[in-house]
Design a protein around this nucleic acid. Structure first.
Lengths: 219, 219
DNA sequence: CACCAATCTTGACAGCGGTAAGTTAGGGGC
DNA sequence: GCCCCTAACTTACCGCTGTCAAGATTGGTG
């Protein structure tokens, strides 16, 4: 403790005090600014104001740090979804809003989203970092929970709830991927008709899937 | 020319002769063997039997090489899809088989598939490598083409064909991503019900979406 | 107040993508 | 048949990265 009362920004103490959290939250910013390809441990460390090897006191690996960032991402995603559900009461509206919120999260945080899902070696990471599993499962639970309520109210037809969730999740996840990788524009370019705004296409896809899961006798 | 007539495998000539193609096809193997993270230009070069700088005679960049590999991937994907369509005549069966073929391609070549779709900087690459755009559009065209025939025969309801294609593509793309990243097992674990085999879940999702796009007056 | 263990720094290493300069050899013009 | 031009390839090198080992610093505990 060097008793340096002023200049809250500049770090002075040898011990940072909260380096682990600082690294994760700065990594979230850095990830979206630079993209995953240019995301560097050394850059991250210097941004936080520590030496390039300091992160190794808190994370075994670069991968371990990224896993912690991904966990944070799942929490953020959960917040998006919960907010969307709470703001509406109509089942269809809840469903669509939740889907839109999911896609919005992905398109607003493409690098983070990519980190959370589009890594081939992610299965191995899940075993090493159980938190990742829990965070992902929690987000998925929000989805199946909503579908379960819709099913109980008779709005959705009978059937395996996890199967429904899997289908809807795959849809919104695919929407995010296709949009952030720019494949959607291609869809508008190379075919004869126009796709309309992306928002309309998202809504239409969601409603299409919902229609397929609906109880035929419901309104 | 060192006049070494034997040993066809070991390269002897200073000039390789067909290095570009050799690099791309070897990259396809290396990608699935090592995963995208451990994919190294130097490793690739030594496998083909050239120095680590040789690839730069044929590709501007590592990215450019990977783009060429991705193009090859889209051609392979197209072959999967065409085969699935040609083997069946019933519209629903064609649709399901095409979707299953798509998912099969993705799960059988996860690293390649990931390379083709799950890169954030892919939009920039599309501008630099028009072949990538064409190859991707061609694959998407196979999908919309089939949906167009189903629509013309009255099996699908009226509506924007690109929108339909977008929805279906997003679904199958999402299925691939969730499966290869291991999120599907999570779906089975963390919720109360069982999801059944993955194949069943895929088929159910596809049929769910199809049902949402169907013409209500059709069979 | 002394010491311990956690935290952070410094310095080093191999391996990576990429560049520059030199080497080899296939093939067209004579 | 020979020469030479140019594309293809090699070697040597650069800066940067992730990672590790050894040493410096300190807050907290006894």
């Amino acid at each position: 403790m060097k008793s340096c009362p002023v200049s809250s920004l500049i770090k002075r103490t040898y011990h940072h005090g909260d380096l682990r959290n600082a690294l994760v939250s700065e990594a979230l910013k850095l990830l979206e600014e630079e993209g995953a390809a240019d995301f560097t441990l050394r850059d991250l460390a210097s941004r936080v104001g520590v030496s390039h090897a300091a992160p190794y006191s808190h994370f075994e690996d670069k991968t371990a740090l990224l896993a912690a960032v991904a966990v944070e991402g799942f929490h953020k995603l959960g917040a998006y979804l919960e907010k969307a559900v709470q703001e509406h009461s109509d089942p269809t509206e809840q469903y669509v809003r939740m889907g839109e919120a999911y896609v919005r999260f992905g398109t607003e945080n493409p690098a983070l989203y990519n980190l959370m899902f589009a890594s081939e070696e992610l299965p191995e990471q899940r075993d090493k970092f159980p938190e990742l599993n829990e965070a992902g499962s929690a987000a998925f639970g929000l989805l199946t929970g909503m579908l379960g309520r819709m099913q109980q109210s008779g709005f959705l037809r009978e059937g395996n709830l996890d199967g429904f969730g899997f289908a809807v999740w795959a849809l919104v996840h695919g929407l995010v991927s296709l949009i952030t990788t720019g494949h959607v524009e291609c869809a508008g370019d190379c075919a004869d008709a126009e796709i309309g705004t992306t928002e309309e296409a998202i809504r239409a896809s969601l409603l299409g899937m919902l229609h397929g899961l609906k109880n035929p006798t419901a309104a």
